[in-house]
């Protein structure tokens, strides 16, 4: 498997990917897609964090199956990831990330993906990571609801360690929900940024 990935990515890059530790905070529409993309790329270890269980209302945009309803998202996603990348290391935490436990849960992660649904939780994680984990990169997301053009889902650098994906304004509200392809585009932008950071392709 490693050789197959080395043949496609080049040996040096694949070795970098296989040594990487990346945290995914929130395993919904963004996080489940980010984790799958990173597992396919042959990342070494993912830290998966979500307190929630798979619900029937998640299946329209999140990478779970009807047979997984009721499982913790961490468990369900771990099953799916192991079928894609059997040798990936997974560290699962089925609990809510708070200002108190965040440093412990994210220990060892060089890149942290913010993939929450709630705006206040997004801001909390962003501020806490940037204030308290000075060596980590944060790749966050804001604005991917509705059926606006996918071309508006972009990624940009806010600070040296803080990247933001999304259109910046499309929020979930009455009559404007989340649609799989637009959420996937945003999650894909986040996963691609992770790979670009690991490859040293982003501005230092």
């Amino acid at each position: 498997m490693q050789l197959a990935l080395e043949a496609r990515h080049g040996k040096a890059l694949q070795q970098r990917f296989s040594q990487a530790v990346v945290a995914v905070c929130g395993l919904g529409g963004l996080g489940s897609n980010i984790a799958i993309a990173l597992a396919r790329a042959g990342l070494g270890k993912l830290i998966l964090i979500d307190f929630d269980r798979v619900d029937i209302t998640n299946l329209h945009r999140q990478q779970y199956k009807a047979s997984q309803i009721g499982l913790y998202k961490t468990e369900a996603l771990a099953e799916n990831l192991k079928e894609i990348s059997p040798y990936i290391q997974l560290e699962c935490h089925s609990e809510r990330i708070t200002e108190e436990n965040l440093e412990e849960l994210l220990r060892g992660a060089e890149i942290i993906c913010e993939a929450f649904d709630d705006a206040e939780a997004k801001a909390m994680l962003t501020n806490a990571v940037l204030e308290r984990l000075p060596d980590a990169y944060l790749v966050a997301a804001s604005g991917m609801a509705g059926l606006g053009s996918g071309n508006a889902i972009r990624s940009r650098r806010i600070t040296k360690r803080f990247y933001l994906c999304g259109d910046g304004h499309s929020q979930v509200e009455e009559g404007s929900g989340l649609f799989a392809p637009r959420v996937m585009l945003c999650g894909a932008q986040q996963a691609l940024l992770v790979l670009r950071l690991l490859a040293g392709l982003e501005e230092a």
Partner: peptide, 10 residues
């Protein structure tokens, strides 16, 4: 200065 204002959805 840049103020990032998060919106819900994910």
């Amino acid at each position: 200065i840049e103020i990032v204002s998060f919106v819900g959805g994910g």
